[in-house]
Amino acid sequence: MHGPGAIAAPRWLQLFGSDVPPERSIDRPNAPRLEEDALTLRALAGDTDAFFALAERHQARMYSAVLRIVGDAHEAEDVVQDALLRAHSKLKTFRAEAALSTWLYRIAINLALRRARRRRRQALQHEALLCGPETPTADPAAAAQLRQRRETISNAVQSLPEKQRVCVLLRYFEHHSYDQIADVLGISIGTVCSRLYHARGRLARLLEGQL
């Protein structure tokens, strides 16, 4: 199926060149690069199936980051689906400055932030960061202590300003590199460094005597 997102061939070729360094794209570590590029090309040519096949490769990471931001599983699913639909409809505006997966991620993060702002005005869920499964431990006391520590840090992170909080989420919870964070948020690496530096300082003050 071919959608409205077809663009001219010269733009496609940029994806094959060195314009997009592999380390700047948010891929699964074991994803074959060529297969990813082929799907991207087909998607840009208007192949909807290829687009959603590509989206399927990145949906887990999109969902994880979105869930940590919005704090609600159902809302996170909605956000990811909306992001995919929005990306598909705006595919012709994709400028190939970064990988298509980074672009998808960026759309999802922006939508999640918008939803989070709305939710924050209603009711803030401080446990949003702890939506991952518990790590199995043999010692119940140690497990309880670890859980307490995670909750404390999670609450402190949630109280950060939005810009700093998103950087911390992407860096420490989604394990993105500084380059990737800069790409996703559309800011410079220096800004990422600065935001993380100030976020750590603020967390140190918030968590003083608790760690």
Binding site: F52, S64, L84, C131, G132, E134, I153, R171
Partner: peptide, 24 residues
């Protein structure tokens, strides 16, 4: 703080529904 965040962030990411893209 860097160490503490790294420890907390080492927890597995929440599982995503497998059919998210298909539903979209």
């Amino acid at each position: 703080i860097h160490t503490a965040l790294t420890d907390v962030g080492a927890a597995p990411a929440p599982a995503a529904p497998a059919d998210l893209a298909q539903r979209a």
